[in-house]
Simulated assay, not measured.
Amino acid sequence: MAVDVWVLKETAEGERRVAATPETVKKLVSAGAQVHLQAGAGTAAGFPDQAYVDAGAQLGDALENADLLLCVQAPSLPTIARLKAGAVLVGGVQPEADPARAAALQARQLQTFPLERLPRTTRAQAMDVLSSQAGMAGYKATLIAAQLAPRFFPMLTTAAGTIRPSKVLIVGAGVAGLQAVATAKRLGAAVEGFDVRPETREQIESLGGKFLDLGVSAAGEGGYARALTEEERAEQQRRLAEHLKGVDVVICTAAVPGRPAPKIVTAAMVAGMRPGSVIVDLAAETGGNCEATQPGQTIEVGGVTVAGPLNLASMGAVHASEMFARNVYNFVALFLKDGRISFDWNDELLAKTVWPQRPAGGEIPPV
């Protein structure tokens, strides 16, 4: 009997993405799966039910029959309770973020693959949901900054005189930060990028930005940043505070998966910025890089606008869903073949992503 694959309609507040698109449904069907979809699962992302039906899916709500469940964010506790024991769950599950969720997953003995745990290797790039969604988040954060800023981003020569370009600083040069650098540059701003890792200079400059060198290097061994000494951190903070006095827009993107976002822009730095300046904190969901950030809100602090938008990737639901769905399909293709599920635990992408972590040489531990 063919594997029964189900695609959830997301229930998290503000979530518009979907874990499968008509494109990936066709691929799942070609792999021998029987695909079911909760009605309206893709509507908010621009994919009507009929498009899924035309791709070979069936509409329904009998989640109890699911062998494999695909999701963007973790299912609700009632949904988890409906799943049969031993079913496979793939998506942005984040079991460690909620003890009740973790307990529910274990109670149903689900074989859970939280894609945020995927090893960051070259082979895994086509499955990397963190990177694909961070790209959309960096893009949207820059557009929000441009909208909030009380000035043009590009330089303009007008009959009323020349308008200088906005000076935009991107904090953090991961995927989101580099996308923000590229987007702000396309909008005509004078762009700088800052990261504690000096090796990001080349990446920032390749996108047309200028690397902000604060004179303190965190270069460590193996390509990882080392911890700064207290003296180095104080000097870095002093120089950054001085530099922010001349910046029009700051876009914060520094985040560490599974940990609170590092505080980089202090309240004192915000107080030192010019009135009319803007801070958009992409890291708001994990506490924010700015001490003044209030997640989900846009506030004004001493004339400086501080925005902490949430779930930025969902704002670009069409393309974000297309990328997410392709990531999910590429991961599922590791174990879904000829209509059957079969796990090769010698494959590190499976062995290191599954939760709970299976012991070396053993099966997934029973609850």
Rank of each mutant, 00 (worst) to 15 (best):
K9G: 13
K9D: 04
T11K: 15
A12T: 14
G14D: 14
A20D: 12
T24C: 02
V25W: 01
V25D: 08
K26E: 15
Q34W: 01
Q38T: 07
Q38A: 10
A45I: 09
D49K: 11
D49S: 04
A51D: 15
A51K: 03
A55M: 09
G56A: 07
G56S: 05
G60F: 09
G60D: 11
G60K: 09
E64A: 13
N65C: 00
L68S: 03
L68D: 04
L70E: 12
P78Y: 06
P78A: 10
A85H: 11
P99L: 11
R101E: 14
A107R: 06
Q109G: 03
D128W: 00
V129A: 10
V129N: 00
Q133S: 07
G135T: 07
G138A: 01
K140N: 08
A141N: 05
T142I: 01
L143T: 09
L143H: 13
A160H: 04
S166Q: 12
S166F: 05
L169Y: 00
L169Q: 02
G177A: 06
Q179H: 07
A180N: 06
L187S: 02
P198K: 04
R201T: 11
S206V: 03
F211Y: 15
D213I: 02
V216G: 05
A218M: 10
A219H: 07
Y224T: 05
L228P: 00
E231G: 02
E231F: 01
E232T: 02
R238T: 11
K245M: 11
D248Q: 12
I251A: 08
C252Y: 00
A254G: 05
A261K: 01
A271W: 02
R274D: 13
A283E: 04
A284M: 13
T286W: 05
T293P: 06
G303R: 08
E322Y: 06
M323K: 06
N327D: 14
F335G: 04
K337P: 09
K337H: 14
K337G: 05
F343D: 13
N346R: 02
L349H: 08
T353W: 11
P365K: 03
P366Y: 13
